[in-house]
Every structure is written in C-alpha cells, then in structure tokens.
C-alpha cells in the first residue's frame, strides 16, 4: 500500500509521518509537494501536523488553498483514504471535508503530553485493528484542538458514528479532566459520513516505537494497511 505525506510550507511532522509509514509500517511512502497537482498514485493521503503557513490567520486556513488540495478533494470525493493528523485535521475542517471547527484549548495554552483516547468506532478503515472501547496512549501537541460544531451537526455526527476517538482517562472513562482541550463530546478523532476521511488531534506517528514510550499509534497504521485487498 502506498502512502503519500503532503508537505505544506510550515509542516513539521511530515518527516515523522514519513518515518512511521515507511520504516515502522514498512510501506512505500512518498512526499507530496503542496505546489504540485499530482498525488503520485498513492492509496492513502496523510496531511501531517505542523504549522502550515505559520497558522497565522487560523490553523489550516491558508493550507486549504494550496494547489494540491484540488487533487486531495477529488481523491477524497472518490472514496480515497485521507488521514489528517493535528494540523492536518485542522486543514480537513477548513476544507470542509470534515464538519465543525477548532477553538483554542480550554485553558488557552499549547499542550504537549501523552493522553489516553478511547476507540469509539472500530468499523472504520482507521480503526479496524482496534476494538471498540480500547484505550490508546498517544501524545498530543496543539494549541487549537477544542473541536466545536453546532448542536445539529453534533447530533448528526454522533448518530452516524462519525466520532472515532474520544479523550478519556486511563480506565476509559470520560471525565471533564480527561477532556484535555475541552472538545465537544470529548472528540479526539472524527471521520466523514462516508468513512474514508479522518482527522485526529493525537499523533499516532509519535507512538509507533517502544523506545519513545508507546506503540499504540500502530493501531491506526495497521488498520490502514487492512484496506488494501
């Protein structure tokens, strides 16, 4: 399975994602330059973390205008797999490929730490190697991860099972404290209705080697690999 990691100016987890998919997962992986109009025949597009265009206007707000986003939109429209991590999630929201928007974290500080998240839906291309209710330990590193949407949207998203991960405590319980950034319904990962586009604030690519403290991110990577027949 071939993975493509998009490089925006200001992406800074592009190399980490590349390393995770290429070396930890052992799959052919390529960088996709934001100014190109070519997805190089990849099976899955990764929008990595970072500060695309400095995130000066609003996280992800400028990246959506990058030339390559035309192809990414088409690819997603045809059912192609797209994973947005952190800033990539923010870009997917700005592209309207996912519903809602991000607010600043509830305590108005950047947060970098390990969090625990619960698999809410294991029937997705991103989680089929996980089990519903399983708790994963994966790091976050963001300022704007407080997901927000109008009430009707939230209802719809919940009704469709689009919430893929929620912040929880180490036992899998949802508490105010464990909802680290204040997201509505503790949303940590969200997919579109069709189930081929997912955004998540935690960084699975940072949790694929035991030397760094956790391998739980492999659940997402291994799940993606199951999609190729």
């Amino acid at each position: 399975m071939k993975f493509g990691v998009v490089v925006f100016p200001g992406s800074n987890c592009d190399a980490d994602a590349y390393h995770a998919f290429k070396d930890a997962l052992g799959q052919p992986t390529t960088y996709l330059w934001h100014k190109d109009h070519d997805l190089r025949g990849v099976d899955c597009v990764i929008l990595p973390g970072g500060f695309s265009y400095g995130d000066y206007l609003r996280s992800g707000a400028i990246a959506r205008f990058s030339p390559l986003m035309r192809e990414v939109r088409e690819f997603a429209g045809k059912g192609g797999l797209v994973l947005g991590i952190c800033n990539g999630f923010q870009v997917l929201l700005e592209l309207n490929l996912l519903p809602g928007a991000m607010l600043r974290n509830k305590r108005l500080k950047f947060l970098c730490q390990y969090v625990t998240i619960r698999v809410e839906n294991d029937k997705t291309p991103f989680t089929r190697k996980g089990t519903k209710g399983r708790v994963l330990r994966i790091p976050i590193a963001h300022f704007d991860g407080n997901w927000y949407a109008p009430l009707e949207t939230v209802k719809e998203v919940e009704g469709n099972g689009q919430v893929v991960f929620r912040y929880c405590d180490s036992e899998g319980r949802l508490t105010e404290e464990s909802n680290i950034n204040g997201s509505l319904n503790a949303v940590a990962g969200l997919m579109n209705k069709e189930g081929n586009v997912m955004g998540m604030m935690p960084h699975p690519e940072r949790a694929v080697e035991s030397i760094l403290g956790s391998e739980d991110g492999l659940v997402v990577l291994h799940s993606l690999l199951e999609n190729i027949s």
Binding site: N12, C13, A15, D16, H19, A20, G49, K109, F110, L111, C112, Q113, P139, A141, H203, E205, R206, E209, I211, L212, G213
Partner: peptide, 25 residues
C-alpha cells in the same frame, strides 16, 4: 512550563522532560 513546549516532534525524544537530563535516540 514544559507541556507548553512540543517536546516530542521529530520523534527522537526517548526521555520526556522532568528528569535531570533529556535523552534523544
């Protein structure tokens, strides 16, 4: 202080902040 810093980007941080020294693979 240190949770406001991204201390894991580049995925080499083998010992998280808080100890007397930092360790990178």
């Amino acid at each position: 202080v240190y949770r406001q810093y991204d201390h894991m980007v580049q995925t080499n941080t083998a010992l998280l902040p808080g100890a007397g020294a930092a360790v990178l693979r």
